[in-house]
Amino acid sequence: MEPDVKMLLSIKNLHASIEDKPILRGLDLDVKAGEVHAIMGPNGSGKSTLSYVLAGKSDYDVTEGSATLDGADLFAMEPDARAAAGLFLAFQYPLEIPGVATMTFLKTALNAQRRARGEAELPTPQFIKLVREKADGLGISTDMLKRGLNVGFSGGEKKRNEVLQMALLEPKLCVLDETDSGLDIDALKIVAEGVNALRAKDRGFVVITHYQRLLDHIVPDVVHVMAKGRIVRTGGKELAHELEARGYADYVEEAA
């Protein structure tokens, strides 16, 4: 079969393990530009693993299969090159970096990516204006931008900060790992609006979540069920409602 070049993300028969323990076991997933895909599935089914493997975390070994972003082999690139190529991961547990102001971190990241793509660095005044604009929309205060990255941020603030970074870096593919967990109802709306504002015909999303609630705000084109390291069912947005009502019991059996 010819590789489908219009595919934004194309994962074929992906096997990956950590410390010789297989976690992903033959996973296939195709995301077209402009689409939002939701991935749901029981705890420990390998959702975060998938996001880490795509982003290039070194703890994981890819033992089989392939993944391409816009036709480019992801596994041939270092994590920073994958980021510059347009892959963004909103972490389930964002890291803290003491002493590095959030603003400084954002600027360093944006300029690193621009440099990697052969673009000029953004002048500071323009950069500050841009960040303020995006931060305002997400209810992130100037004071937070001055604080150490994620240091002392509440769970919800950390998640909003992930969305801020995503908005600033304008990736091609956004992988959101449980960005809704830890958010109160208002914050959930703010974050969802932030994500929706980024929806574009040349951008794709993989939204990992446990709750239908998020999908009321970020309406997916496709919903996948993941169990034991594979995609075991794919459907439309109504699949999420079905899961909410019935749980994962059927799929866990099937995948075993």
Binding site: A55, G56, K57, S58, D59, E78, P79, D80, R82, A83, A84, F88, L89, F91, P94, L95, E96, I97, P98, G99, V100, A101, T104, F105, T108, A109, L110, A112, Q113, A116, G148, Q165, L169
Partner: peptide, 24 residues
Amino acid sequence: DDQMFYCQQRGLSSEEAVALIVNG
């Protein structure tokens, strides 16, 4: 390693990540 990976995921090379963290 997790801090390093986080920085790299945002586009920093490992050396830029160390420099940033150390400067902080």
